[in-house]
Amino acid sequence: MAKLFILGAGGFGTALAVMSQANGHEVTMWSYREDEAAQLRTDRENRRLLPGVKIPEEIAIVTDFAALGEAELVLIAVPSSAVRSVSAQLHGRLALGAVAVCVSKGFEPETLKRMDEVIAEELPENPCVILSGPSHAEEVAKGIPTTVVAACRDLDMAERVQMTLSGDTFRIYVTDDVIGAELGGALKNVIALAAGALDGLGLGDNTKAALMTRGLTEIARLGVACGARTETFGGLSGMGDLIVTCTSMHSRNRRCGILVGQGLSGAEAVKQVGMTVEGYTNTKNAYEMGRRLGVEMPITNEVYKVLYEGKDIRQAIADLMGRPRRHESEYTWLQEGNLSR
Rank of each mutant, 00 (worst) to 15 (best):
Q272D: 08
T247S: 11
R254N: 05
V273D: 10
T245K: 12
G274Y: 03
L242G: 08
A269C: 09
G234K: 12
D241W: 06
M239T: 14
G257P: 02
G263M: 03
C256A: 09
A269R: 00
T276N: 04
T245E: 02
I243P: 03
G274D: 13
E268L: 03
K271H: 14
L236R: 05
Q262Y: 04
K271T: 15
G266Q: 01
H250L: 12
M249R: 15
M239P: 07
A269F: 06
R255H: 12
G257E: 09
M275F: 13
S251R: 10
E278P: 13
I243T: 10
R254L: 15
I243C: 04
G257V: 04
G261R: 06
G266M: 03
G261W: 02
V244T: 05
G257K: 08
A267T: 01
T245G: 12
D241V: 11
T276M: 11
K271W: 09
G234E: 04
N253C: 00
Q262G: 07
M275Q: 15
I243Q: 10
Q272W: 07
S251W: 13
I258L: 14
T245Q: 08
M249E: 14
S265F: 03
S237P: 06
G257W: 07
T276I: 15
E278L: 14
I258E: 00
L236T: 06
H250S: 07
G263H: 00
M239G: 10
M275W: 04
S237H: 06
G266A: 05
E278I: 11
V273H: 09
S251C: 11
V273T: 13
R255L: 14
